[in-house]
Amino acid sequence: MSTYLDFKFGSFNNTCSKVSLTLCPLVGSTDGIEPLCYSRNVKLADTLIFQPSTLIIHIIALVMTAIMIYHIRSKYTAVGRKEIVMFFYLYMLVTVMDLLLISGIIPTASNLYPYFTGVHIGLISATFWCLLLNGFVGFQFAEDGTPLSLWSIRISSFVIFSAITFLSIATFESLGPFSATNPVTLWVVFFVFNGACLLIYVILQILLVVNTLDDRWPLGDIVFGVAFFSVGQVVLYVFSINICNFAKHYIDGLFFGTIATLLSVMMVYKYWDSITKEDLEFSVGSKQNVWEVKELMGDDEMAGGGYGQQQQHLGPPGSGFGYNGNSPAPGTYGQANFYDGAH
């Protein structure tokens, strides 16, 4: 097993000797690659559940992603709403597949395991690709929300998903020129392609904030997102064995890597939310005036009287006039004069 610790381009030996990725049982050798240290399993209803702590984080990730999707869909007129929500749907699918495979709900001995793992890897690449394309939405090369913008992301993401899924399954089954013992192409896709998509997205968003927005605070969301993801990858691929030994096999790097990935995805949402603003005038042209009236009435009430102060200018009940019996001066009460005051 010590040979697996040596890094080699195009080989998962070094990676899989440290952390139990879903593809590790399918590459490297006939029996796959087993990590030197991994989290304990628990028995639940006569079923062994692997990575129980990571399974809990996956469930939390699903709940948090559902909440983020709800808030995104609630911002009806925000720029790129329909585009960015596709990224979170894909992340949710990746989490579900990860949950099924990492926990052993779909056992590695099953004949279906290579196919589910291929779908999982295809979804990961499609998620990174979708995030990359969302990086172009803010530049308005195609107007957001239009069929061109939406279907270009949907179709291209599906093509990436299909191609990477086929590549993964062909590698696991050693079909044609692909080999499970020498998975160079899959390694390049898993690390280089996905990493390049993320890097380009980050660069695009920095350019967008610096050149387009007056506010620089969204840069903080980008920095935190990159920091969370980077720390998670370092913990996952470098310190997993150390964490596993220190924690006496209760947790390993996969636990912290999953948490860091969730936090980075949450920062993607936070960043998008900070650079988008919902337009309150999308349905009724005079809606802005209505909001201004409510704000002015609220200010009058807080200033000392509100509705009670208006009553002082009214005459006897039913007269419709002031104390002197004259018509009230314009603006004493009535919604129309609030509009005038607002302008």
Score class of each variant (00 low, 15 high):
residue 1 M to G: 11
residue 2 S to M: 12
residue 2 S to E: 15
residue 4 Y to V: 06
residue 13 N to C: 04
residue 18 K to E: 03
residue 19 V to P: 09
residue 19 V to C: 10
residue 23 L to D: 05
residue 23 L to P: 05
residue 29 S to P: 10
residue 30 T to N: 13
residue 30 T to F: 12
residue 31 D to V: 11
residue 31 D to Q: 09
residue 34 E to F: 14
residue 39 S to P: 02
residue 49 I to C: 06
residue 51 Q to M: 05
residue 54 T to D: 09
residue 58 H to W: 06
residue 64 M to Q: 12
residue 67 I to T: 13
residue 67 I to A: 08
residue 69 I to A: 08
residue 69 I to W: 08
residue 71 H to S: 06
residue 72 I to N: 00
residue 79 V to K: 08
residue 79 V to M: 11
residue 80 G to E: 04
residue 80 G to P: 14
residue 90 L to G: 02
residue 91 Y to R: 03
residue 92 M to W: 09
residue 92 M to V: 06
residue 93 L to V: 15
residue 95 T to L: 00
residue 95 T to V: 09
residue 96 V to N: 01
residue 97 M to P: 02
residue 106 I to Q: 00
residue 107 P to F: 11
residue 111 N to A: 15
residue 111 N to Q: 04
residue 115 Y to V: 15
residue 118 G to F: 00
residue 119 V to E: 02
residue 124 I to M: 06
residue 126 A to P: 14
residue 127 T to K: 03
residue 132 L to H: 00
residue 133 L to P: 05
residue 133 L to R: 03
residue 135 G to Q: 06
residue 135 G to W: 06
residue 137 V to G: 00
residue 140 Q to P: 07
residue 147 P to D: 05
residue 148 L to V: 07
residue 149 S to P: 11
residue 151 W to V: 01
residue 151 W to C: 06
residue 152 S to R: 04
residue 152 S to T: 13
residue 156 S to I: 00
residue 157 S to E: 00
residue 159 V to K: 01
residue 160 I to H: 03
residue 160 I to G: 01
residue 162 S to F: 08
residue 164 I to M: 03
residue 166 F to T: 01
residue 169 I to R: 00
residue 169 I to H: 04
residue 174 S to Y: 14
residue 178 F to C: 01
residue 183 P to G: 02
residue 187 W to Q: 00
residue 187 W to N: 08
residue 190 F to G: 02
residue 191 F to H: 01
residue 194 N to W: 00
residue 196 A to M: 05
residue 203 I to Y: 03
residue 204 L to M: 06
residue 206 I to V: 15
residue 208 L to R: 14
residue 211 N to E: 15
residue 212 T to I: 12
residue 212 T to G: 04
residue 213 L to Y: 12
residue 216 R to T: 11
residue 219 L to P: 01
residue 220 G to D: 04
residue 225 G to S: 13
residue 228 F to T: 00
residue 229 F to I: 12
residue 230 S to P: 07
residue 238 V to A: 09
residue 241 I to P: 00
residue 245 N to R: 10
residue 246 F to N: 11
residue 249 H to D: 11
residue 249 H to F: 08
residue 254 L to P: 02
residue 259 I to P: 01
residue 266 M to V: 10
residue 267 M to H: 01
residue 273 D to N: 14
residue 273 D to V: 05
residue 276 T to I: 05
residue 276 T to P: 08
residue 278 E to N: 09
residue 282 F to P: 04
residue 285 G to N: 08
residue 286 S to L: 12
residue 288 Q to T: 13
residue 288 Q to D: 12
residue 288 Q to P: 08
residue 290 V to C: 09
residue 298 G to S: 13
residue 300 D to K: 07
residue 302 M to T: 14
residue 303 A to Q: 10
residue 303 A to G: 10
residue 310 Q to K: 13
residue 312 Q to L: 15
residue 315 G to V: 12
residue 319 S to G: 10
residue 320 G to M: 13
residue 321 F to V: 10
residue 324 N to K: 09
residue 327 S to P: 01
residue 331 G to N: 14
residue 332 T to D: 06
residue 334 G to T: 15
residue 334 G to A: 11
residue 335 Q to L: 07
residue 340 D to T: 15
residue 341 G to I: 07
residue 342 A to N: 13
